[in-house]
Amino acid sequence: MKVTIDNITIDVEPGTTIMQAARQIGPHIAPPAMCYYEPLKGSGGKCRGCLVKVTAGSEKDPRPMPKLVPSCITQVQEGMVVENTVNEQVLEARKGVVEFLLLNHPLDCPICDQAGECHLQDFSFEHGVSKTRTVEERNTFEPVDLGPYIKLNMNRCVLCYRCVYTADQITEGRVHGVMHRGDHAEISTYIEKAIDNDFSGNVIDVCPVGALTDKTYRFKSRVWFSKPVDASCDCGKCSGKVTLWYKGDDVIRVTARKNIWGEVTSFICNTCRFEKKKTSDWKIEGPMAVPRHSVISANKYAANKITPAFPMKQAAEQYKKIDDNRDRSFLNAPKELN
């Protein structure tokens, strides 16, 4: 099946979604995803961050689709033409989605454990605008302890439902879910019960923001000060394939391995995640591949030593016009700032 996304044509299997097709082309084409999570069945369609414009439905019926469609749940048709980053309407809608997601989201990145590996940070940096239009007070919730390992900070939640699908699909007997509705909807267990099962820790990994955090790791380090190393062990319960996060010689955190889309490929058990925090527990495989743009990669590897010409070239390539039209006349600068 041939599908064209942003003028790039690719051949994909029938039944592929637009998102999967775009990911096959590459990260620069793939729409952002806050709720969609490929390993979890039924996820997607909720955050509306991946809306795209379909300018031709299929070869047989080349009419454009009237509304923007969520690319994560829309299947491709033969001869479909999709506009993602080249369509003004799509970019405008995405700005709106970022604005909506940040409307009640606290700007507490400096004290949030997720900072540096937060999908919402990436999403708002790539697709948001630099100014705010809201003067309203944010909705707030009290933080809740979900058992000995997991802390829930509902203020930061974007209601992607990933943790709900995770509990449904990889653990027995889900005890948490979404209560209430609208902007006071919240993730909660029934009467603040603990989430207690062997795979409960995976909800921390699937959470795109800092709403669900690891209580054994909270406030220990900023993520970019720790070094990620792939390791494995023989675990009877799970695959045992993990990433260890070192600070100095100490393992301060254990997480499941994630692919370039930030998706866990094989879920790990709580013993591996919370109990085995000594190097002797693990077989080290080597450093984790960190994408160059990630803040985690900063100042880590000597092999990536940057020559002076390189940042200039990178800046020229990655230069992006910032939408910021605040009045700067008082700065006594030339009027036409880009």
Partner: peptide, 22 residues
């Protein structure tokens, strides 16, 4: 509409509340 939004998708969940407040 703010009161009745189900809270599943972000534009409606946050947007209805925002419009109500404004």
């Amino acid at each position: 509409y703010h009161h009745e939004s189900c809270g599943q998708c972000s534009p409606c969940r946050e947007g209805t509340g925002w419009m109500d407040k404004i």
